[in-house]
Amino acid sequence: MGDKEGSEKFKRSKPDFKQSQRKDGKGSTIDSSSSVILAFQSFQHELDARHDKYERLVKYSRDITTESKRTIFLLHRVISEPNKDDVLVEANRKLDGVREKMKQVALELVGEDIYQYYRAITCGLQEYVEAVTFQHFITNRMLLSLEDINRQLIFDNDINIASNNEDQTRPSILSLPITPVDYLLGVADLTGELMRLCISSVGNGDINTPFELTQFLREIFDGFAYIGNTGPYEISRKLYTLKQSLGKVENACYMLKVRGSEIPKHMLADLFASKSELHEHDDGMS
């Protein structure tokens, strides 16, 4: 309210000047068909179209993120051989759903520079990489390569979608390539999941998985160390967290080796939980 009053006062204080200026100008108001105004009208359309597209992509990206996160939680429920297959089938189904969303993203980006809208989708893509590499690790105990991920992200542009849109000629093959940086950041997040998997597998009395995981994490850590600071800033930040995860997993293996023979299996988990909490505390201090 105060604001309104102020502006009214401002207007009232020099009405004469405003009128005289307008009279002296070309017309009483600005000519709405002048070339400048026409140009700005076209800018309006261009900017609106761009912002709308951006918002749609952000929404897709959010959906991709939540669905990928759910897949990861689902995959953490793999406890023993019998339920493994069911969970994996379910996870696959979910990931197919995610890929369907990514196809929509690819459709939005037809004919666009992907980097123009990169910030809208990068979070979703990273989360997807995390989910899909995690699933691949659980099934094959291997790191899924960037090439393999991208191979799954080539979609046929079926007629259904093409006819929904205007009669535009669209390429028959769509793809949404993951960038190397997104891949690396996704893999860095994966290591956090692997750490969780390691701790929980001890709880389930599985003493082989921790050792496998440690080996795998070490390889990834070495890989990141090789990249070092050639990548963007985020990667070096993730490297720090990765080191912590690796430390936890290595400690877990150490405990298993030393105490494994002495302590009954069902008590190992407790021992571990307290030890890793202690470790976290240490990190906070240093």
């Binding site: 790191l143 390569s145 940086v181 891949y183 070495d222 990141f224 090789y226 050639t230």
Partner: peptide, 19 residues
């Protein structure tokens, strides 16, 4: 492809970007 190979390949891509 081993993990190391993958990272070596990614790294060369990143260096090219940096250049």
């Amino acid at each position: 492809m081993s993990v190391t190979d993958m990272f070596v390949r990614l790294q060369s891509g990143l260096s090219a970007d940096q250049e």
